[in-house]
Nucleic acid binder design. Structure first.
Lengths: 358, 358
DNA sequence: ACCCCCTGTGAGTCCGGTCTCAATCCTAAC
DNA sequence: GTTAGGATTGAGACCGGACTCACAGGGGGT
């Protein structure tokens, strides 16, 4: 109760000034380390501040410097290790430069994202890092950009928005991994993603996610290269919760001409797909080959260990934060580095399909 | 370039007021929805605000309401799925009540934690949720508490700090799972944790983490109940990065009298332990039994699926945020619910030790 | 016709810092 | 002994809202 006395008011510069017997202006200067202050005054002020355990009110400071030293991060879902790791890269980098991070989840909902961006702007963050839910609906991001607030996109590009974007180009790696599957003898290859769409996949349809578009483009290229086409029916979007993923997986494996390989678009999907495969009593890779995006540690623990497309997620987080801070501080963007690229890591989950083995 | 004109200043109430031809006070009232405002004025102000796309400056608002609608969350590492999930619970709940979350990682470093708490206080967050790195060094938390800022601890208790704490009691579940291992015939059971200590484990030593203390207490109780003691050498703390965990695991399994079961303190450790076991060419559970804390999805995917202690992590995040917001809003703490408890989920990674099977 | 009270309204203060500006000091150079 | 010029210093404006206060109208009661 020593601190009581009916809700103690926070200590302000004025209090410190009074205690040090100087003007508020002088106290502020000594505390803020700017302007000219005599050694005598400085030490008295600092002593008083110490004594009163004064702490500046960052809100007030932000208000008239116009800098909040805070950046906003808007992602689909931190629970998803992909974003967890990226966020770690962002916060580590931000902290190094003295920035804090406000984190908002959108569940990949456009309205949530729009609102999140608005809230962050209202809080006067110095800049934003957004993993856009849609690469097509980008008006809210356009607004941010036009307002002059620094903005960096993560993971996905936004159509027609000339904003610094940290993402790996997916076309190449998707082409490469599809070719890998085709060469192993697979022809019926499925792709499963959570991406929400109004209708089932049609080749050439406009997709909300540049990542997914690119992956499909890569797959189609690999198919067409050997004179085949990727059956639209093998591309399954709208894979939502664990149950729906399970159903999709069963569907793919129980149809008249079952797929012989499944590509999972992210770690969360992978989990449910593999589980569903196991439930069906099928084994990887004898009965179905499997390939997934993102190289999480647990993929090395299954038997067989899973073949994955590894992305430098942490590093991308670092890069996004770095780029944003550079923008905020008005420095030139770094000489556009080599860009990030993904790698196919061949472990044990891809083999020849049964049929091909005779 | 339409937005140019040398860095456009943000629109303020004053601007809106001028456009609507009313006083700043009236505009503020109409916008803030307080006080008395005639219908005429209200509509003119709202129209002007819309026209200018006015957005209130939350910083300014916070400054004189004393509320920032922001809560600070301080965790060891969001990359760790345990915290990822808890954070999700927190942000979901916070959002529902109109709060935002500032997230800071500490890497379980006390100095980082102290600084994090300070920064958040400086930013005038309305309250804090902290997963304390130490249950013993709690001065900085004590300070927060005494300053009157709402504070809720997550996952770990803090000694002598009378603060609302959301954590599962570990003693019971640890006792239960140890007994399970003992009954299976194991006597040489190892416990591996990242907890940093100055010296190797000695029974009865004071540990920084209440979670770990409790778990060891439970283990020791189970041992003593059948007239045995838990060998201190089987408790391995300071398991840091993947390499060090690998070495520890090798050590435990290659010593003259190797352990027959290993308990991993969290998911990150589990990953490296299992990997090390596989590298040694040993199999679970034939050669070593394995048990871990936290029930992540991937634990069902390994062969055999892993036996785990499942904790309601997401729900605890929800509860922590709920409790904090209740404190912030000055409402009575919820009738202290049943508390959270962990469950032992027996899957396939525990079996009789080789010797006992003869 | 007079008074009271309630609704509307604008001027101005305050939150807690930063920063401008003019006044005061002090010291070295003339 | 002056004086120019830099170092110090305090008063006060300002950031952008929230909120207090005094005051103007207008309707109802008597």
């Amino acid at each position: 109760m020593s601190n009581n006395g009916s809700r103690r008011r926070e200590i302000t510069v004025a209090d410190v000034a009074k205690a040090a017997q100087v003007s508020k202006a002088q106290a502020a200067r000594a505390l803020g380390n700017y302007g000219a202050v005599s050694e005598d005054v400085r030490s008295r002020v600092l002593a008083a501040a110490e004594e009163l355990s004064y702490r500046p009110n960052e809100l007030a400071r932000s208000m008239n410097t116009g800098k909040s030293n805070t950046i906003g991060v808007v992602v689909g879902d931190i629970e998803n290790p992909h974003f967890g790791l990226a966020t770690r890269g962002i916060t580590d980098t931000a902290k190094k430069s003295g920035y804090n991070v406000i984190l908002i989840n959108t569940d990949e909902e456009l309205t949530a994202e729009t609102e999140a961006v608005q809230v962050l702007l209202d809080k006067r963050v110095d800049g934003l890092i957004v993993a856009p839910a849609s690469s097509v609906e980008t008006k809210h991001l356009q607004d941010v950009h036009e307002s002059g607030r620094p903005l960096v996109l993560l993971d996905r590009k936004a159509e027609g928005l000339d904003v610094e974007t940290i993402a790996v180009s997916m076309t190449g790696i998707s082409y490469e991994s599809t070719r890998y599957l085709l060469q192993a003898g697979h022809r019926r290859i499925a792709f499963v993603s959570t991406l929400k769409t109004g209708s089932p996949y049609r080749s050439g349809m406009v997709l909300d996610s540049s990542q997914i578009s690119e992956r499909l483009e890569g797959m189609e290229r690999a198919f067409s290269e050997i004179g085949l086409t990727l059956p639209e029916d093998h591309v399954r979007l709208n894979a939502g919760d664990a149950d729906s993923i399970r159903n999709i997986t069963r569907g793919l494996l129980l149809m008249p001409e079952p797929v012989t390989a499944i590509v999972a678009s992210d770690g969360l999907i992978a989990l449910s797909v593999v589980e569903a495969i196991q439930e069906l009593g099928l084994s990887i890779p004898e009965d179905v080959s499997f390939l997934m995006y993102d190289d999480f540690s647990w993929t090395r623990l299954t038997s067989p260990p899973l073949t994955v497309v590894s992305q430098p997620v942490y590093e991308m987080g670092v890069a996004a934060a770095g780029a944003l801070i550079r923008q905020i501080e008005g420095r030139k963007p770094a000489a556009n580095g080599p860009g990030f690229s993904a790698r196919l890591i061949r472990r044990g989950s891809v083999a020849m399909p049964r049929a091909a083995r005779v």
